[in-house]
Design a protein around this nucleic acid. Structure first.
Length: 301
DNA sequence: CGTATTTGACCGGCGC
DNA sequence: GCGCCGGTCAAATACG
């Protein structure tokens, strides 16, 4: 993955979801656009579209069939520029990306030296493993991303995630967070970042597929049609309201105007909260966001 | 005390 | 070869 990303890091300054995604917040929900991609190798251009491998099938756009990339970009740009939002959980914008190869887990615990300079004497033992890993080409898991209008960064999806990294994003005041599924046998990862241009928008990228129904139910991995995943996400994905989850914002909230809402919006808050509760209840019964993605027959849970 | 998060260094790929 | 960058690691820390 690193390689795939690194290849595009130069154009990355144009990594602007705002300019590339379409959404509507007219009434709390949602234009589903599904972006299926191809491999990263096909994504040589500069926008998030390319990183995510935007490619939209016509049939599952929830009423708006975005089969034209330009249309998506322009639509989303207009939506973002207008920056009018009626609710903090208004939009889910799924995208699917298939990536070709990855070297991201090349080191998976290969060395104890890791990175911390705190370890005064990092054992150079990783050289060997490095050389070994070097030849290995990782098969990258399919990715699908959402552009979600939400005040919270980390969206509840019924699975538990452990944060393993955070990086500043170029040309963005907001960091990107990296999460891994807490299930040790599950290699699913996700990235969460907030759009720099429209702080009300959260971009969540999932990579891989859960090999378990819910926490603690391992199962052999299966490949599922990414379209199904996207469809499932579009139905299920719900930002977790601050009523239920109040994440820490380690970064400056200069755009906090998007994050807090006046008390006179209680009606809307109430409206959204039930959605969140629904999401939470699903999680509690082990459905999870991916419940739709993992067909019942494939679940162990 | 176990688990999750923070955080700075490290890694590998790419462009120059 | 060097620097940049996205992604990852893992010790330190925070949290329950």
């Amino acid at each position: 993955m690193i390689s795939a990303m690194a290849g595009k890091q130069k154009p990355d300054p144009e990594f602007t979801a705002e300019s590339s995604c379409q959404y509507s917040d007219h009434h709390n929900v949602v234009n589903h656009s599904f972006l299926f991609g191809s491999s990263d190798d096909d994504c040589k251009e500069s926008s998030i579209l390319n990183e995510f491998g935007w490619n939209i099938p016509a049939d599952i756009s929830g009423g708006d069939d975005f089969t034209d990339l330009d249309r998506i970009e322009s639509d989303y740009a207009s939506a973002a520029s207008s920056a009018h939002w009626s609710d903090d959980i208004s939009t889910v914008e799924p995208m699917v990306v298939s990536a070709s190869s990855s070297s991201e887990d090349r080191r998976e615990k290969s060395t104890a030296s890791g990175g911390s300079s705190a370890t005064a004497n990092p054992p150079p033992s990783d050289a060997a493993s490095k050389a070994k890993k070097k030849g290995e080409k990782r098969i990258r898991q399919p990715r699908f991303a959402f552009v979600t209008k939400s005040e919270v960064d980390h969206l509840e999806d019924g699975y538990r995630w452990r944060k393993y990294g955070q990086k500043a994003v170029k040309n963005s005041p907001f960091p990107r967070s990296y999460y891994r599924c807490t299930n040790s046998k599950c290699m699913v990862k996700k990235r969460v970042e907030r759009s720099s241009e429209d702080p009300s928008v959260v971009i969540t990228t999932y990579e891989g597929q859960h090999s378990h129904h819910s926490i603690g139910y391992p199962r052999s991995g299966l490949i599922i049609d990414p379209q199904d995943q996207a469809a499932a996400f579009s139905r299920r994905f719900t930002p977790l309201s601050s009523q239920f989850y109040q994440p820490r914002f380690p970064y400056p909230q200069q755009n906090s105007r998007y994050i807090t809402r006046p008390p006179n919006n209680q009606g809307k808050v109430e409206d959204q909260s039930h959605v969140v509760q629904e999401a939470n209840s699903r999680a509690s019964v082990g459905e999870g966001l991916l419940g739709d993605i993992v067909p019942p027959g494939m679940r162990n849970g």
